[in-house]
Design a protein around this nucleic acid. Sequence first.
DNA 1: CAAAGAACTGAACACCAATTCAGACACTCT
DNA 2: AGAGTGTCTGAATTGGTGTTCAGTTCTTTG
Lengths: 224, 224
Amino acid sequence: MVYRRTQQVVKRLAARRQAILSAARETAAEGGMSAVQIAPVATRARVAAGTVYRYFPCKADLISELIAEVSRDELAAIRRAADAAPGPSSALAAAVTTVAVHVLSHRKLAWGILAEPVDVDVTASRLASRREIAGEIELRIGAAVRAGHLPAQDTALAATALLGALHESLVGPLAPDNLDDAGRLRDAVQTVTLLALRAVGVMDARARGLVVQAVMPARILVGA
Amino acid sequence: MVYRRTQQVVKRLAARRQAILSAARETAAEGGMSAVQIAPVATRARVAAGTVYRYFPCKADLISELIAEVSRDELAAIRRAADAAPGPSSALAAAVTTVAVHVLSHRKLAWGILAEPVDVDVTASRLASRREIAGEIELRIGAAVRAGHLPAQDTALAATALLGALHESLVGPLAPDNLDDAGRLRDAVQTVTLLALRAVGVMDARARGLVVQAVMPARILVGA
DNA sequence: CAAAGAACTGAACACCAATTCAGACACTCT
DNA sequence: AGAGTGTCTGAATTGGTGTTCAGTTCTTTG
């Protein structure tokens, strides 16, 4: 054996792997999951179709990693927003708002990650992704309950229901289609956050206050 | 032309068409949408694969009709339940409960109709189906608002969000998996109805009362 | 009953994207 | 340089399912 993987090569391999993943992500963001086919992704990543298989055993694995990656980013954003809030109720509001804004900023990608039909089986990673996000929301609901801001409840079911409400009303097939202008987008985020907060038992008046606070940070509305 | 479709034949044709649809529905209920393939459905309906194409131009049309049929039944059930309620808030509660119970009673079918990946394009009929159901819920929310029982709100968005919450928490991938025993099923229905009512602005205490009323009719819990 | 039209059958075909692999190329080390 | 190993290429293969259609069977009518 007279061959050793030099550092340079290791880096190149890692870079190429990431290039393929990024190409898949961009493709999904532009054309939805149905557009994520091996050949186009390979072209976009400037490699041949066969090369993709040196990095991912099969298409399902590629898409699973894509889902995991997006999910990781999402979770980090939620935590950042919630941790910056002054109290448990605000944290919950911030978490919900963050999900809403993210999902709206990348509708096609979100729809692809969440629910769009895919020709390979990615149930496992979708499940994991949802679990992570729902788990985080559940934590925040739990904290608000313990702080006495919310009535006792099944936090897991509540978290799942909240996510369902957000997704369906913002990226589902019945989502309003005029959410591209910033004003309407903010309205939708506010409305849906209000619904979510009331659902877990925040009083109407207080919920309205929390929503305004949560949506305030303008940076949150420029996307990312 | 010395051939005329006799009454007997017309009936047989209609029966066969319905047999194919029913076979598709049963197949979907047992194995999900992925199991709904032309060959198995044809076998189940006791016809050859080719015969299916004498009744449905293509698979997408077959599945679209299946979705429409299920959706029609669902809508009828919702209306029946809501119309039997004593007031607008009760009607809303009844409508929500009905959706929850139905969806739980036929989880695989519901998942197939709503969101399961299908290899042909059925977005249009899924959209129509959702629109019908959401429209009905929206009407009920609107009535409750006009009656002064709920704060003014975007009823369309609210209806969509409610359905999303129901679906995600009851048939989505994060749905609890122990809903087969009647007690837990009722708990889940109650919890989720409570969330839904609070989301649109019903006070916690009042919502709890409405939920109990709506879930009361025992017949609603034996399914169908 | 025979002729003509309609419906049915099921094996063969078409399609399309994931996956493979033999040959070309690149890198490492003596 | 060149032997040995790893990596890349992209055309060909594969697999699975929707769809077709030539031949068969059934139905109607004179």
